[in-house]
């Protein structure tokens, strides 16, 4: 495999990792707030907290890894996206800062403050919305290079149907992924009331998710027909994604194998995300940056790949340990280790 393909595959995989675990986190924030509003917080909050507490910081790292990796493997992205994204990037950073710090304030500091919880819930939806617009921009048409430099047309972004379709998909996917995971987690915790409530959320958000996906396809065909064409060529990816979706919803609906159901949800998004990514190539930013044109020098690329492999050797056992302690440890999940907190 060529260096640029190795690079983009690694990065896309990490972005996929971020998509899944950040969605769980973002959605959980929303559900926490929503259940507080509807006075059902006593049902779901213990489950949400028990899962989120040990992993929240890790979520952030996936994103940073992706960004740093993109700049390392494809340095031109720093110049183009860096210039164009000043405003949207700053908005995203401010939201992320509010979210991260307020989580810690609410969780380790003063408990159950309504304002903190609101900010934590609201940013859970706004952050995926703002991140998804970057994918929208990569389709081309919004960022332009002229003699005076690189400019982004924000007005265009707000009036574009593709842009709205992607944003809509991002928000509903977050809620769907999160609720299907938390259903599984609540089930492991033998917490039936929480499981039933979260299962209801998962089923409720499954319809909008598939609807939004179709909407994105339709809008893509109008916005970037070439990309749409490339996507059709690997249509089987999206077909498999749909099958996984049907399987997942069926299992959740029948209250069977919640773990398998969540794996199917991950596969659903996996197929769709990698299908999208593969058909997006060779462009990182249509039409200015391609992976072949922007790839870093072979020497540095090789060093990055070696570092990556060495890093994985440390990372995989560490992540495994984390999951083993907090996700697959039935006693922890059931809350029998509550005394171990600080």
């Amino acid at each position: 495999m060529s260096l640029e393909m190795i690079g983009i595959t690694v990065l896309w995989t990490f972005l996929y990792g971020y998509l899944i675990i950040a969605s769980i986190d973002f959605g959980a924030g929303f559900f926490s707030y929503y259940s507080m509003k509807t006075k059902k917080d006593h049902i779901v909050n213990t489950v949400i907290e028990r899962y989120l507490s040990p992993v929240w910081e890790v979520t952030n790292v996936f994103l940073i890894f992706f960004i740093v990796g993109v700049i390392g493997f494809f340095p031109d992205t720093a110049y183009y996206y860096g210039t164009a994204l000043l405003i949207p990037g700053s908005v995203f950073l401010i939201l992320l800062t509010i979210r991260g710090s307020f989580y810690a304030f609410a969780h380790y500091g003063v408990r159950s403050n309504r304002v903190y919880m609101f900010l934590y819930g609201a940013t859970g939806l706004l952050i995926p919305a703002s991140l998804s617009t970057i994918l929208t921009m990569s389709e081309g048409g919004f960022i332009k290079e002229t003699d005076s430099g690189i400019t982004l047309s924000i007005a265009q972004l707000f009036t574009n149907s593709y842009s709205w379709a992607v944003t809509f998909l991002a928000i509903v996917s977050v809620l769907y992924i999160s609720s299907s995971f938390l259903t599984f987690y609540a089930n492991r915790a033998n917490d039936t009331p929480a499981r039933e409530l979260l299962r209801k959320y998962a089923l409720a958000w499954s319809g909008p998710t598939i609807l939004a996906s179709l909407l994105v396809f339709w809008a893509l065909s109008r916005h970037n027909p070439d990309h749409f064409q490339r996507a059709l060529e690997i249509g089987w990816c999206f077909g498999l994604s749909l099958l996984c979706f049907i399987g997942a919803v069926f299992l959740i609906w029948k209250r069977k194998c919640f773990g398998l159901a969540f794996v199917l949800v991950m596969l659903q998004f996996g197929f769709a995300f990698f299908g999208y990514g593969a058909s997006h190539l060779p462009y990182l930013l249509d039409p200015y940056i391609t992976i072949q044109g922007a790839v870093t020098s072979p020497v540095l690329g090789k060093a990055l790949v070696i570092t990556f492999i060495a890093g994985l050797l440390v990372l995989i056992p560490s992540l495994g340990l984390l999951l083993w302690l907090f996700l697959f440890n039935a006693k922890y999940v059931r809350g029998e280790h509550e005394q171990e907190h600080l």
Partner: peptide, 21 residues
């Protein structure tokens, strides 16, 4: 960052692993 990305992105990349751990 474009220039730095071409030369000194390796330690930045390593840092994300340290941060991960």
């Amino acid at each position: 960052m474009q220039l730095a990305g071409n030369v000194i992105s390796l330690p930045l990349f390593m840092e994300t692993f340290a941060f991960f751990v």
